[in-house]
């Protein structure tokens, strides 16, 4: 599974209150949530991500609240994968369950610049940016099957 796109870059400790504020949590509609993704820190995010992007971030991306809408909003806004130094546990699981590839890539926040094209091999975790190749933690096994199906619901529908 290969995903590719221009980099949108953020810092450390991007929390889920920032990814999708609580006032939007009474909905699970992807199209609605997408319009408000990252709103508190980047009100233009919805436009900037709409053509398909690779989101690059620092430590514990997605920390905080368990709201699954955080993963839904990013994916629906056009995020094809999130590459981060590390992920918060709940967000990581939510992303996989919603078919959004999430790859832990040590050094990514130093190596990647805004606008560069990043190419990610999900299984191996290999990330290519310009001339450089970084080695991340690939997704395999059951999690990969869920991702390839597009999410846990789609996966369950396929296997049952």
């Amino acid at each position: 599974m290969i995903v590719e796109g221009p980099v949108l870059k953020y810092g450390d400790k991007i929390d889920t209150d920032v990814i999708i504020p609580a006032k939007y949590l009474k909905s699970t509609d992807p199209a609605f949530l997408a319009q408000h993704a990252m709103e508190p820190i980047d009100p233009q995010f919805y436009q900037r991500a709409s053509k398909g992007v690779i989101l690059v971030a620092g430590k514990v991306f997605g920390m905080g609240s368990s709201r699954e809408q955080a993963a839904i909003a990013l994916k629906a806004a056009g995020v094809r994968a999130v590459l981060a130094e590390s992920f918060a546990r709940i967000f990581y699981r939510n992303a996989v369950n919603n078919g959004l590839p999430v790859i832990t890539v040590p050094g990514i926040s130093r190596e990647a610049s805004e606008g560069q094209i990043a190419r990610v091999i999900v299984e191996s975790g290999e990330v290519r940016i310009g001339e450089r190749t970084l080695k991340g933690k690939g997704i395999t096994g059951m999690a990969l099957k869920i991702l390839e199906s597009g999410g846990i619901m789609e996966y369950l529908a396929k296997v049952s």
Binding site: G64, S66, E68, I90
Partner: peptide
């Protein structure tokens, strides 16, 4: 539980953690 602050029950020595809606549904 479907909430990150599920860890609170650790006060009594339970292994308690939050998860998203899909994991909790399962």
């Amino acid at each position: 539980a479907a909430d990150s602050h599920t860890t609170t029950s650790g006060a009594l020595g339970a292994f308690a953690q939050g998860m998203g809606a899909s994991d909790i549904a399962a």
